[in-house]
Design a protein around this nucleic acid. Structure first.
Lengths: 206, 206, 206, 206
DNA sequence: GATGAATGAGCGTTCATTCAT
DNA sequence: AATGAATGAACGCTCATTCAT
């Protein structure tokens, strides 16, 4: 089974649809969904305005596709990077590392998924909220497990979870590649901050 | 003869300009600057579209006024709530409390000031960036003081400052009045989280 | 009887009305009536938009006042410069000199009176057309007199009259003060051209 | 298979772009560029306002296209009607006839090209001025040739050229088809006037 | 006489979308 | 699949005008 649309003849089919998604992703992230026109997206792809409608039913459908695609990929990647079970401290470290690095790797997807919820019409909105909830649930699960085992000092799990996610996500607002710190160094700083915020003093060896 | 239009009853004359600012503030915060039309703002104020231009030269000027006004007020309020000098741990607590409560009190101003930077044209942008920098500088000053005195365990002051601000600001993304926790309780939770993230175990009595 | 509005106290009253006329005249001439806004006129005068309406009932009334005032002044000046009676060749020379010099002296009035007829609403238009006709009639009278006396070679008086006026008026499209020729020199060139176009070879001494 | 959209019947497909140009031409000529709205142009064409922008980038671009198109066509037609070389008196006659008849045939193009220079933004203005200069240059060439040969009595070639053009162009301000004189008769009157104004008494047989 | 604020209409332009080709 | 042309609605903004102060 072939992953892409390469035909047997080996002639690669112009994958306009993906090009549209890439263009829209970067433009939406940069300037926001309402500020981006279909014409701009088309121009970046190298087609005309109307051509987009051969691939997406509407601008809204394009947004939903981007957000839903991102969230599903994020959940899959999370489940790979942070398998269930094991020491909550280790799992928290993995979660923090995953979250920070994923956010630094795919900042556009992440930013859109958080910011453009308000641009969603009701149908798409409820699907997206559910996916976001599922992601946050993974962190709440880790915090609860650590609380049950007495390894985390947590005043309030839901608040702490939201606070942690906000803190971690904030990395995207200031980190720039090529600066003083590498992505991995930043991730480790955030791991330390997260651990400290939960009162963890020594992380078990991994 | 009174200079301003305040009548003897103290009832100020209908101040259209302020009403426009209030309407624009809430609409921009809710749906974003590009998604809000001058017509909508005018409608909410109860005037016609063109009337706005008696008070603001352009939609952009209105945005700049909102953002700059907010940032200047924020800096003044910060200097009142967190005077310079004193124990850095105490000042950090004051900063966190101030930041969280201010953000919960004026969530719209705060949100716009962070989110709509991308909607600013160059002239306004540079003024706003300077104001933001000045605010962040206050926190960096506290962290550096604590680091010098050895009361904070800080890997990297600028990163820690940005991480803290992002964490604190994140409170606006989930807190809703009337929920399980009061604003003050949430502020104290954030103070504790911030202290822990800096390795502070006991706060000095204030 | 005092000509201006200087009061007995000697305090000169700000003659806003005339200032408005002057500003409107130059702006209408430069860019055309529809392209000029009441705000621009007011700005040039140093008052606010609404202030104009203390002096003129409407933008249209302002235009009519300018055009009618100009045409009446033009007719008066013509009758002074080119009195009736006398040799048609001499009177033609006087007419040409008057027309060219008046057009070079008051190019804005002249231009508006010809160009902005189309901006007039019916009431003003018929009054202005009558005034224009009266002016052209003066030239036709001269041409007819010369034709009767056999001193002008004219194929068709009305055509010749319109052609002459168009030729003379055209001086405004190219003449600039400070150039190679003085106004008087240009006027004499036009006199010669006009004479030649009527087959006059020697002008009687004046 | 045919390259263009001309069907076998020869009936060309409804050419909206040309229809827009025609509508704009007549409206601009009638009321002036600033007084005409895109809505009016579209209405006359039978499309909606926005549809114009499929053919012209802006109202200004539409004006430039009209003016530039006219001037280029005028120059081509002139070079056909008045070939270089030959007796300057004959060429002058041809020029006058051409100018008058072209102006009576295409009065709208002509009027716009002279009147709406002030509505042009700088880029278009300089292109148009160059085209106008090229046209006037043709007449100056004829006058200079006649002056050199001693067949024209000219005080000043540039002034005479501008004066002649103004006189000839003025025909559009009064001539109406169906009046007492045919276009050709009017043209011959202007030829005679032009010749007389240059002191030419007998035109060589052509 | 002048102002500041308002209005209703209209401006040039752009928008997302449709559809015959 | 893509285009060119169209649409109807909306955009930010300016217009001439009015009027209470």
């Amino acid at each position: 089974m072939l992953k892409d649309k390469t035909s047997i003849s080996g002639q690669p089919k112009a994958d306009t649809k993906q090009a549209i998604e890439r263009a829209a992703l970067s433009l939406f992230a940069e300037r926001g969904y309402p500020a981006v026109s279909m014409r701009e997206i088309a121009e970046r792809v190298g087609i005309r305005q109307g051509g987009i409608y051969n691939h997406f039913a509407s601008k809204q459908a394009l947004l939903v596709q981007l957000m839903e695609g991102h969230m599903r990929a994020l959940l899959v990647a999370l489940d790979v990077s942070v398998p269930s079970g094991g020491d909550p401290r280790q799992r928290l470290g993995e979660f923090v590392r995953f979250h920070v690095l994923y956010h630094l790797t795919q900042p556009d997807d992440v930013f859109i998924a958080y910011m453009e919820l308000r641009s969603l019409e009701p149908a798409g909105l409820s699907r997206l909220k559910e996916l976001r909830r599922a992601y946050e649930e993974r962190l709440r699960g880790i915090l609860e497990a650590g609380q049950r085992l007495g390894v985390f000092a947590i005043t309030d799990v839901p608040v702490q979870a939201m606070g942690l996610i906000a803190m971690l996500t904030g990395v995207t607002t200031w980190y720039r590649d090529g600066g003083r710190l590498s992505r991995d160094e930043v991730a480790e700083i955030y791991v330390t901050m997260a651990m400290q915020s939960l009162g963890v003093e020594e992380t078990p060896t991994m």
